[in-house]
């Protein structure tokens, strides 16, 4: 994966949070994902195919998504279904933005949401996965980009 690709995913994510909430997340040092799992309570996964193959997923804590949903929906009463929709929507928006830049031969799947701390999210073995730590309003989350 090229440096510019990774920058694009980072910028797209940072912009999403900033535009939706008015608060810019802080990007931590990216690293290569190894065997250790990078999964928090809610995960939104998007498959990528076409000219480039792979997947991206964003994983966040329930607490962070509660806060995020509260800002977006303007209510503190947010249930699990809304949170699941939200994490799927975040993943979808990020990859949608990237598709706009990469072109329409870059296919994205519908978002798949995983609730609960899964053992790990499997990404293709032959493609390297990059982990981008994000801190938004003191909440930690991770964006994982796996793209050939």
């Amino acid at each position: 994966m090229k440096e510019t690709d990774l920058h694009f995913f980072i910028d797209s994510t940072v912009n999403y949070f900033e535009e939706i909430t008015g608060y810019k997340p802080i990007t931590g040092i990216p690293y290569l994902k190894g065997a250790e799992p990078v999964v928090l309570e809610y995960t939104g996964i998007i498959g990528i195919s076409g000219k480039r193959k792979g997947s991206i997923y964003i994983t966040a804590s329930g607490e962070m998504l509660q806060t995020l949903a509260g800002i977006i929906l303007g209510t503190k009463e947010v249930g699990s279904p809304e949170i699941k929709d939200l994490i799927g929507e975040v993943a979808n928006t990020i990859s949608g933005n990237v598709r706009q830049a990469f072109g329409t031969d870059f296919m994205i799947s519908v978002p798949v949401v995983v609730e609960g701390k899964a053992k790990d999210i499997k990404t293709p073995d032959d493609i390297q996965s990059f982990v981008i730590p994000l801190t938004w309003q003191d909440h930690k989350s991770f964006l994982i980009v796996c793209l050939e």
Binding site: M1, T27, P30, L32, Q128, I132
Partner: peptide, 13 residues
């Protein structure tokens, strides 16, 4: 900043 490390991590890959 964190994103300055992007080229490093790509090269590491």
């Amino acid at each position: 900043s964190g994103s300055d490390f992007v080229p490093i991590v790509v090269r590491l890959g």
